[in-house]
Structures are given as structure tokens and as C-alpha cells.
């Protein structure tokens, strides 16, 4: 018997990406640089978050022409972003046979109330989360992979740390609750009880958890691995830096060897300047991408 698009098949690709770095790219040439540096996958988009922030306006799904160009340039998985709730962009990306759809707060949301019904798709989805309840709501909608949101396009790691600590801390608290306390916990988390129970029993999310939003250096990547991320997304951090190929290789190396500070130190040498950064705490409410979605 042969079955496609089972939840195991969807989460399976995320399992294969573990310990890896997924890099934002805007051209086939950048995709090739990312692949040659050891990226486990690339995220195809029109503008990296730092540029979306600078330019303003509505940020949408990328041009299919550009996505197809990236797909033919590399053999590693190609992901692409759809706006929150924009199931038609997701249908288009599925038709293009991208390997994962990121229903992303980095793009301008299309629906302020509803996220995409991800069960209805063959292509798997990754979604952002700032806390456990948000992660479990997305999993309830069919997400097969979760990433912390962080604050994309800033080069400031503080929000990613906050979100990762929030998610892992809430998982720890769930795991010490009794069975009779789980329904109330599910109510507080605004998340499905069946998934809350699964997390409480397993002590982990039922899908792979990556970190995103603000990683700019090898030490940032290693920090997030140490805080419980199973891999990292790097957006503007690579191609907005002085020397993208060298920095990309260094972040891959630090993600693999995060437990060995000597290796992280070696990887951090001579990378040139990091991306131009923004301090998240100084951004105004309307500029915070992590607040998009619920």
C-alpha cells in the first residue's frame, strides 16, 4: 500500500532538515551560494525581511518565475512563503511543487482571523510561533514544522531567545501537570486538548522546532541550538552581510558544532561585518512582525 502526504511524510522532511541551516535567498545565484555553503534548504523570496522592513508596502508571495529559477539552480529543498491566511498563494506554491510552504508573518497578512487550513494540502507547512499555545494552534491546523518567530530583519536575537525560552519553558511546565489539569491548561493555551496531552506526555512538540528571526552570527545560531532549537532559519543575516559565502559556511559549521565553543570560535573568525542591525526594543508596535498572526 502506498500513501502520499500523510502527516509522517510531511513531518518527515523536517526531520531530515534537523541540525541544518535554512537560508533566505532572492536569486538563483544566491541559492547556489547557499547550497555550496552547506545549507540544508533555501527559502525563496522576493525581498529579505530587512528590505521588506526598509521598503514598506504589501509583501506578497514571490514571483513563480523566480521560484522556478531557484528550483532549477539547486538540488536541496526549496521553501517559499505565503501570506498568513492566503490559501490561494499556498495553492500556487503547491502547484509549483515547492517542498515546504512557510505561512509567514514576514509577509503582510491576508486574513486577520484565520490561518490556512493546512490539512487540506499535500505540501507541508512551517509556521511561526511566539509561545506554546500559538505553536499548538498551528499544529492543530496541520502545520508539520514550527519555527520561533523572533523579529525578522533586525539582526537582533533577543526576540528569538524570548520565543524559544517561552515555548520550551511552557513545554516543561506542561510535563509536570497531572492528567486532571490538562484540560484547563489547554483552555489557557487556547490549543486542542489532544495535542496538549501529546506534548505533556512526550515533553516535546509533536513536530520539529526550528528557530528564526534575528540570527546574524555563528554564535547566535549556536545559542539557539543550545536553547533547544533543532535547526535554524537565517534570513537577512547572510546576504545582507559583507561576505555571504564565508558567513553562510560559518553559520552551518556553528550549527553542527554548537556544543564545542572552540569550533564556534573558529567559525566566527574573519567574517567581515554582520548585517546592519535594528534594536527590536526600539521598534514601534506597528513595525513588529512577530505580532502578526495569533
Amino acid at each position: 500500500m502506498r500513501d502520499e502526504a500523510t502527516f509522517r511524510v510531511k513531518t518527515g522532511l523536517a526531520e531530515m532538515l534537523k541540525g541544518g541551516v535554512i537560508m533566505d535567498v532572492v536569486t538563483p545565484e544566491q541559492a547556489k551560494v547557499a547550497e555550496d555553503a552547506g545549507a540544508a534548504a533555501v527559502m525563496a523570496l522576493e525581498r529579505v525581511p530587512a528590505d521588506i522592513r526598509r521598503d514598506g508596502g504589501v509583501a506578497r508571495m514571490s514571483d513563480p518565475e523566480m521560484i522556478a529559477g531557484i528550483q532549477s539552480a539547486v538540488s536541496i529543498p526549496v521553501m517559499a512563503k505565503a501570506r498568513i491566511g492566503h490559501f490561494m498563494e499556498a495553492r500556487v506554491l503547491e502547484a509549483l511543487e515547492v517542498d515546504y510552504v512557510d505561512e509567514s508573518e514576514v509577509l503582510t497578512p491576508a486574513d486577520e482571523r484565520n490561518h490556512i487550513d493546512k490539512w487540506d494540502f499535500k505540501v507541508p507547512f512551517v509556521c511561526g510561533a511566539t509561545n506554546l499555545g500559538e505553536a499548538l494552534r498551528r499544529i492543530g491546523e496541520g502545520a508539520a514544522m514550527i519555527r520561533s518567530k523572533g523579529e525578522a530583519g533586525t539582526g537582533d536575537i533577543v526576540e528569538a531567545v524570548r520565543h524559544m525560552r517561552q515555548i520550551t519553558g511552557e513545554i516543561k511546565r506542561l510535563s509536570i501537570l497531572g492528567e486532571d489539569e490538562l484540560a484547563s491548561a489547554a483552555k489557557d493555551l487556547a490549543a486542542p486538548l489532544s495535542i496538549v496531552r501529546e506534548v505533556a506526555e512526550g515533553g516535546r512538540l509533536p513536530v520539529v522546532l526550528f528557530c528564526a528571526g534575528g540570527i546574524a552570527t555563528p554564535a547566535d545560531a549556536a545559542l539557539m541550538m543550545a536553547l533547544g532549537a533543532e535547526g535554524v532559519f537565517v534570513g537577512s543575516g547572510i546576504f545582507k552581510s559583507d561576505d555571504p559565502p564565508t558567513r553562510a559556511r560559518a553559520i552551518v559549521e556553528a550549527t553542527t558544532h554548537w556544543q564545542d565553543a572552540v569550533r564556534v570560535a573558529d567559525a566566527s573568525r574573519g567574517l567581515g561585518a554582520a548585517m546592519v542591525s535594528l534594536e527590536s526594543a526600539k521598534l514601534e508596535d506597528g513595525q513588529l512582525l512577530a505580532q502578526r498572526g495569533w
Partner: peptide, 12 residues
């Protein structure tokens, strides 16, 4: 990737 991209992944 002989069986195709992710949408063609399967279990059997």
C-alpha cells in the same frame, strides 16, 4: 530525489 520533490514523497 529519484521519486520527485516533497509533494511526491510517500510511505509504502
Amino acid at each position: 530525489n529519484a521519486f520527485g520533490r516533497q509533494v511526491r514523497s510517500f510511505e509504502a
